[in-house]
Structures are given as C-alpha cells and as structure tokens.
Computed example of a mutant assay.
Amino acid sequence: MTPACPTITLADFQQAIASRDVQFHLSAPRYARRKILAAAPDHCPLCRSPFDRTTPRSFSAPVIATCVHTFLGGPLTVDNLFVCCRRCQQSRASTDLLTLPDLPAHLADQRLAVLQLSQNHPASLPKSATLTEVRQALAQRHAMPRSRVYAAQPDDGSCLLGVSRRYGDRESKGLAHLLARLGGTPLHRDKRLTVYALTDTDFRRVVWQLIDANAWVIGIGRRTELRDFQDHWWVSSASVSELRARKVGGVLVPLPVSAAREVGASALRMRRLAERRRAAREQEDVEREYREASAAYVSWMATRRSPTAFPIDPEDEMAIVARYGTACRRWAEAQA
C-alpha cells in the first residue's frame, strides 16, 4: 500500500526508489518450466537461431523468459512464460517485447493477453462499463511499450517523478522523460535515476498521461486526503474485475467527472423501453379520445336531425364540434 505523506524530501524519495529499484530473482514453478521447455520449438522465436540443447550454459541454449517482465508488473504464471535462447534473453533483459524487431504474431498476442493479467491502473470509464469495455480500454494502453515510473504526491503540493535507467527500453523511458520534462523541471540526474519536480496540478495531468502511455506508476507517497479520481493514480490491480468494480484492495475509486455523465448500454436499453411504453400509452389515449369524441359527435348529429329532440345549448354544440375536430387531428397525426 502506498503510504500517505504530508511532505517528502529528495533524499527520502531517492532512498525509497533505491529499495524498490532492485530486481529480485523470481523463478517459475518447476512443473511449469518443464512444461514450457518440453513444448518449445527447435529454434528461438526472437532471433530464429536453432537451439543448442547439448550445452546448457551456451548462448544458444533454450531458457525460460517472460513476455511481461515481473519488474513491469507481469505475473509469474505459465501464461507469461515462453522459451528463447540465452543470448536473446540476456540482450533483452526487462525491455518490452513490443520493442523487438519482427516480433512473432503469437508472442505479440501472448503479450497482450498477459498484460490484461498484469498490474494495471483504473480506466476512466463509467460505472456501467462492462468487462469487455474495460479490457478494450486497457488494450489501448497496451499498444505501447510498458515502462516503470516512480511517483510521490505529498500534501504540500511539491510532487516528484522518478525515471530509472536500470530497467526498461529506451522508447518508453524517453517518453516518460519527455512528459515529465514538459510538466516539470529536472531536480536530480545521475547515471541511474532522473527526478523531476512538479506542482500538484501538473503532476495530476502528467501522471495520467504516463498511465495512458502504458506506464506502471509505483507510488512512493500519496496525499492524505484523496479528492477525486485523479488522486487515485497509485491504485493498481492484476484483476480486471476489481478495476471494473473500482474497488481495489479495499480502496474505493470514485468515478471521474467526465465518466459520471456517460450512459451505459443497460441504461440506454431501459430508456428505449420507457420511450416505447410511453408512446404506447399516448397512442391508447389518442384512440380512446377519438372514440369518445366520435360518439358524442354522432349523438349530437342525431339530435339535430330529430324534430322531437330537446334543443342543445349552442356553446355545448361548439364544444362537441371542437372536441371532435381536435380528436380527428390527433388521430391522423398518430397514424402518420
């Protein structure tokens, strides 16, 4: 859980990143490794070179790799594993598969499927959004290479963004540097980390630009009092259902102002049903009024033709004729 912080110094921010910017060795279960290696083809899918299974420590030996690196939020499951040669694994490191040239289609599809199961931030969708719509919104983010960014938004409004050089690809890190530089000013730069200082207003805009650019934003510190949807940038989950319900780890994420005004498919169906029912009731009212006005008009005409009938007040006669004329006009309009 990202801690709340009233204020944060550059030294505290760097120290917090240092403890998180370390790649821990994670190994897939043995049964999963055996299953993936047994189903591996005879050549590397990245460089198309044949595997050398006789020398396990050679650069051409098959090894287990991840489609989405665990450092970038990828899960350690069978769906996230594939086999490539040791040379490609070492040269790729933690970079996104999307940055590799001539990426096979099956690996691109596997990457997109795994990213749906990886850590993701909430999407700006109404509460009525379906799981399919949430997945489509996430897929738009995943069309770009994934990066990792560190962020802190203290209560005093002096926000920080950190872009590490240790892991990731140049394209995604370059975009993160560009967005942070456009919204803030460089505060610290060394061989491993660049820190940018931003105001609270610029931070709220830039951090969601980074999220929409498929950045996984690691929260170092957040505000004590969360004001709206934009202050929940640090929330992430590997469950699409949690993101759709907007309740992640017990934290209830409010709807964005723009999304709250949207109408979902179910609401539109209910509106169309209500409109059809209202139109049916109006049609019944028009037909009932036409029948009653016609009956009154026929009765009045019969009275006028009968010499023994009691005379009717002229004002009542005008009312009967006017009612009949109005009923005929409304009935004709309803039939058109």
Rank of each mutant, 00 (worst) to 15 (best):
V257P: 07
T308V: 11
G219D: 05
A245C: 07
E242P: 14
S241M: 11
I320G: 05
A319T: 12
L273G: 14
G264I: 06
R304C: 15
R323L: 13
W234E: 03
M270D: 14
I312S: 11
L273I: 11
T224A: 09
G325H: 13
A245N: 10
G219V: 01
R271Q: 04
A319D: 13
R244A: 06
S266N: 07
E282L: 08
A322N: 12
R277V: 00
R272I: 00
S299P: 02
I312E: 15
E262T: 01
R276Q: 13
R288W: 10
Q230T: 08
E242A: 10
M318D: 14
W300L: 15
L268H: 13
T308C: 04
A322K: 12
Y324N: 09
L252Q: 13
L226P: 02
A265L: 12
H232D: 01
V248S: 10
S236P: 01
P254L: 04
M270N: 14
F310H: 09
E262G: 03
V235K: 02
G264Q: 10
E225V: 06
G250E: 03
A327L: 02
Y324K: 11
R305I: 14
A280D: 01
L255Y: 03
S241H: 12
R244F: 05
R323C: 14
R304Q: 13
